[in-house]
Amino acid sequence: MSNFRDLIASRGGIRPLARALGHKNPSTVQGWWERNSIPEAHLPSVSDISCATEQARAA
């Protein structure tokens, strides 16, 4: 995905994504937002959150 801000927004935003990833402080995800970049090591976790959210909506 070329626009990581859209990816973060689609997961509910900075705070909800940080919470879902288990970060105590949302500043980590806020940094991703500001740089418009998510470290490659975290992309699978972010994708897993998406799948879980979509499954919950379908139920």
Rank of each mutant, 00 (worst) to 15 (best):
A58R: 15
S47R: 08
I8C: 00
A9D: 15
P39F: 05
S37L: 11
G31E: 07
F4Q: 03
K24F: 07
R15Y: 10
A58W: 08
A58N: 12
P16L: 05
E40K: 09
S45Q: 11
S10W: 04
S50D: 14
G13L: 03
N36A: 04
G22M: 06
S37Y: 10
R35W: 08
R19T: 13
T28I: 14
R19K: 12
S37H: 11
R15K: 14
H42I: 04
G22E: 00
A58M: 07
A58I: 10
S10I: 04
A18F: 03
V29N: 01
A52N: 06
S27C: 15
I8F: 02
G31Y: 04
S10P: 05
V46Y: 02
M1K: 09
R35H: 09
N25D: 15
N25S: 13
S45F: 11
K24S: 15
T28Y: 07
A9E: 08
N36W: 08
E34A: 13
W33P: 03
N3D: 14
W33G: 00
C51D: 10
P26G: 04
Q55S: 13
Q55L: 15
S37V: 07
P16D: 02
I38H: 00
L43N: 04
P39Q: 05
S27F: 12
H23T: 03
Q55C: 10
G13S: 05
D6K: 13
H23Q: 09
R11I: 00
R5I: 10
S45I: 11
L17T: 00
L43V: 12
D6R: 09
C51I: 08
A58H: 10
I38L: 03
T28E: 08
T53V: 15
G12Q: 00
L17A: 01
I14W: 02
S45W: 09
P44I: 03
A18G: 04
L43M: 10
G31D: 06
S45R: 14
Q30W: 12
S10Q: 08
P44A: 03
M1H: 12
I8M: 01
R35L: 07
H42V: 07
I49L: 06
G13D: 02
A58L: 15
S50M: 11
A20C: 05
A9H: 09
I38E: 03
T28Q: 10
A18E: 00
M1E: 09
L21D: 06
V46K: 01
L17W: 02
N36L: 02
E34P: 05
T53R: 15
M1D: 13
P16G: 01
C51F: 08
V29W: 01
E54V: 15
P44E: 02
S2G: 13
T53L: 15
H42P: 01
C51Y: 10
R35T: 06
R11S: 00
A52E: 08
E34S: 14
S27G: 06
L7S: 08
R15V: 14
N25E: 11
L21P: 04
K24T: 10
C51T: 10
P26V: 00
P26I: 02
W33K: 02
S2K: 15
R5H: 10
C51P: 05
I49H: 06
N36S: 07
D48R: 12
S45E: 12
E34I: 11
F4R: 03
L7V: 13
S10F: 05
S37W: 09
E40F: 10
E40M: 12
I8K: 00
D48H: 13
K24W: 09
